[in-house]
Each structure stands twice: as C-alpha cells, then as structure tokens.
Amino acid sequence: MNPRRKKRLLVIVAIVFGLGSAIGLTLYALQENINLFYTPSELIEGKGPNKEKPVIGQKLRIGGMVVPGSVERNEDSLQVSFKLIDTGPLVTIRYKGILPDLFREGQGIVAQGVLVEKNVVNAFEVLAKHDEEYMPAEVAEAVKGIKHEKPKYNLDSGS
C-alpha cells in the first residue's frame, strides 16, 4: 500500500475509533436510562450500584413474568390485577383495559404506570414481551409438556 493510501486508511480508522469510543462511553454512562424497564427485584431492592429506588408517585415501566394463578379480573369492568416476578420479590400491577394477545400467565410482560405503593403499580399500558422461541404447537407440547391455549381467567373464583 502506498503511503498516501496508508495515511487515508489510518485517518478513517482513527475517526471510527474515536467516534466509536465516544458513543460507547455515552451509552455506558446512559446504561441505566436506556433500559426499557425495571425488574421487580430492582423496583424493591433498588437498581444500579447505588441501589437507587424509585419514589412513590414516579412514572415507570416494570417488566417481569406474570405469576401463574395471580390474575384476578373484575366481573363488571375491565379492571384486572396480577403479580409480576423475576427472581425474588413480587410486584402487583393494577390495570384497566384490554390486554394484548400474548398476555398469559407465565409470560413476560412490560407495564407502564405509576408507582402507588412500594410494590404496587397502577398501569395505564401493558405490553406483552415475546421470547425468541418459535415452534409448532405439537413440538411445544412435547418439549414443554404443556398444552398451550389462551388461559381461562378464573372469573368465578370471586376474588
């Protein structure tokens, strides 16, 4: 490679490297803010190295798995409440509205709302989070040993 080309290549590499590290450092600094949501344990125990906890009244997103058996529906309205879990503590979500197709017990969801108590969120939006697994129903039955159908909510449990 002749020296002129070499110089141009070096300049390009330097630009990309410099800009790359600048963006990398920015993203690293913003790391906590880019996350779309808190997990239930982050909500209860605090997040990041400083264990920062959200304050009551704060608007936030929370993501976790719907605890099986925790979905309670009001018979007369669209009011629904359920519990979210990741590894430890439970967080209760209250929501009024239509839940997305993929919402089911044992499924990951992300809810946006206002923290009203230490572990209760009044959500105004519930989004279902899909996992990266795709398989036909028969395979899912064979692998996971469960028959997948939309859950019937326990309307008559009277809770």
């Binding site: 996350n35 997990t39 993501g63 989004l127 899909h130 996992d131």
Partner: peptide, 10 residues
Amino acid sequence: WWNTLHQGAT
C-alpha cells in the same frame, strides 16, 4: 446489553 421489549436473537 439492555432490557428491551424486543425479543433476543433467535
């Protein structure tokens, strides 16, 4: 790297 709503790589 981050918590996203989008699922991971398949």
